[in-house]
Design a protein around this nucleic acid. Structure first.
Lengths: 214, 214
DNA sequence: GAGTGTGAAACTATTCACAGCA
DNA sequence: TGCTGTGAATAGTTTCACACTC
């Protein structure tokens, strides 16, 4: 297939496949069928085959997929067969936790800078990084080769953080602040808002309750 | 309309509308059109009208929606016109950050318990809560009237945390661990995996790069 | 035989377009 | 006139079913 436009949902699922495949690899599994992988990921097997078909033909008919090869192929397709340098703006509770969270490095996203505009935080050291004034982002971005920005400011400061990042020449933003930000459209923005998940759960519980009380 | 089955995407958007409406309310706006709200939320205006139609008729033709009334109506529809007690299992970096994160309380989700199985963490106090042994979840859940569980353990301990929560009689789980968990199907589970967003950004940057180099 | 790759079918979600009401 | 509420049209996604290959 090797199509032009890839559904957003597909690339989200590819990330799930990566995690499942890494576990399989750890467990010493060499081969996995779309059925097996589907079970591990909680999706439909043909969904997996369709998703992979966007990027090429990775399987062997009658056999399945070689775990290591498929993992490498997906990682390459997603652009995570390399490392990415990221800078975090907004050293609050959440920012600190993310700086200390090992999963980023483990998955190839290296936090190389921590920025905040609060003078009390500037100079503080977190997870081996010195907190630097946000105004110096542009100057530091070049030295540090930063490509991705992470916003963990309060919502009202998210746009300013975004401006600093854009000015610094980053190419993509992961925004944890619950505020929409405006950026040039060659910059990719992802919104992480985990309150949505809490609302979903609250809604589902209410729904179940209503259903049971009939 | 008042339909039976509401798309998952709709209820996600409703959460976005809530945030936008709260800002409008703060700003003293009394009335908003689907067009105006759409612009604020970055969606299509008829999308908003469709979404709202699942729950009832809240607007006034020729006028728009009364901000306060609409907000109340959506909150009631989502089941967030009340507070929910939640317990967090897994007091690592992320767990600590969430316990300290004011947004939960502000949005009506009250963290009433923190649990961990690490004896070094038990007894520690975080954001006014004493960390309690996970094994005591069931016993505490009743006293504290816990309805929602938050899992912030490492992936390999997520299932155990889920088991404790289910046993304790909670009705929904928000799982921050990057591991699938199995629970009875009357329990609502939401997965929060922000690595997906990083993969998406990496993919999009790679894609733009490829496009520009043609 | 077993399991991929893929058209076609089914389903779901979004957008359009306009009737109907304040 | 202006904006909602909604059927119809469109677009997008998932699942099925089976030809094809190892």
């Amino acid at each position: 297939m090797k199509s032009a436009h890839i559904p957003r949902a597909t690339i989200q699922r590819l990330a799930v496949y990566v995690q499942a495949l890494e576990i399989l690899l750890q467990d010493g599994e060499n081969v996995i069928s779309s059925d097996g992988l589907a079970r591990a990921c909680g999706v439909n097997p043909s969904q997996i085959r369709k998703d992979l078909a966007y990027f090429g033909e990775f399987g062997v008919r009658g056999v399945g997929y070689y775990v290591q090869d498929l993992l490498a192929a997906i990682k390459q397709s997603l652009g995570i067969d390399r490392t990415w340098n990221a800078a975090l703006v907004g050293v609050g509770n959440l920012g600190r936790a993310l700086l200390r969270h090992g999963v980023f490095r483990r998955r190839g996203f290296i936090l190389v800078g921590a920025f905040d505009c609060d003078p009390f935080k500037i100079g503080e050291e977190i997870a081996g990084l010195e907190v630097v004034c946000s105004r110096r982002l542009k100057e530091r971005a070049r030295e540090l080769n930063i490509e991705i920005g992470i916003i963990t400011t309060p919502p009202e400061r998210a746009q300013r953080a975004a401006n600093y990042l854009v000015e610094a020449g980053i190419r993509g933003i992961v925004n944890f602040a619950s505020a929409r930000i405006a950026v040039p459209d060659n910059i990719s923005v992802e919104y992480v808002d985990f309150m949505h998940h809490f609302f979903s759960v609250a809604f589902n519980i209410s729904l179940n309750q209503a259903r049971n009380s009939i």
